[in-house]
Amino acid sequence: MTDKALPTTARVLEMHRMMCTIREFDEQAGQALDSGLARGSVHQYVGEEAIATGVCANLAATDYIASYHRGHGHSIAKGVDPVGMAKELLGRTGGVCGGKGGSMHIADFSRGMLGANGVVPDGVSLAVGAAQAVKLLRQDRIVAAFFGDGALNRGPLFEALNWARVYQLPLLFICEDNLYSATQRTGAVTAGPGGVARAQSFDIVTETVDGNDVLAVDAAAARLTARIRDGGGPAYLYATTYRWYGHLAFDKGLYRDPAEVKSWRERDCIARIEAWLIGRGVDKAALAATREAVKRAIDAAYEAARAAPFPDKHHAFTDVQDIGGPAWA
């Protein structure tokens, strides 16, 4: 916090509430998978909440984001309703995608959330196109593309960086480096000086932040988004972080050194911001009350999801295509 005024307590309290909401949602997402209520792949964002929160605090409702398989946090931070998300996770009516996408395809266009994605790094590719559309239609929007360090060795990411810079698109790339590509340590399979250099080699402006420090993420995102809104072309935020759990909710993460996990848990983004707020004079009890209120809201979201009916079977064959859909075949 050197180049602008410190954020107001109200803003930080809001970010604290957001991080608590994301964490509670994903803790319960893991439980939903364990209990068999959720199916397939559930990638929890626990430990990384500061990045989605700090970036999205600098986006307008009309801005777009695109995400990846670990996408719940980005959705919530962009304003997607946790009730609709919980219903989607449980494959129920009223889910944001009608129960047809599940965790890896949560999207809500009414909130500018263009979707999580099951293929690395295709959310970035879609974000490039969204930014191209914004430019073609002369709209007053920017686009943010979240991706993990696992994307750093995929060709389409290089194509996206090149493309965004060539056409000077209003696009913020956000690399969330949690050190692991699924179960593989990314550093062991990555040549060169790493995730920031990837973008720098395309002459894209970059910033590196501690992704577990929401104030640092907020400040960097504020600088980069302002630059993009001013027509400065794409920018790249590189945020280091760590996921508390495995790649997937059922992955126990045994390939990681317990000391490493412990050291990162000690850098918990929520505990850190709570300490900061207490230093600002916020009452401990007020923070506990926030956590309690968030838990009640997320409990209610999952309760509503459990109570919601499964989609009518005919929806298996709706929205395939207008011409020549399954009813035709």
Binding site: L126, G129, V134, P156
Partner: peptide, 28 residues
């Protein structure tokens, strides 16, 4: 040059960005 866009040899991005642009109000 914006509506007839010359691209690099980047088939993934030609196609991927077209999908992104199509879901955001254009017809590529």
């Amino acid at each position: 040059p914006e509506r007839i866009l010359d691209t690099p040899i980047s088939e993934s991005m030609i196609m991927g960005s077209a999908v992104g642009a199509a879901i955001c109000g254009t017809r590529p």
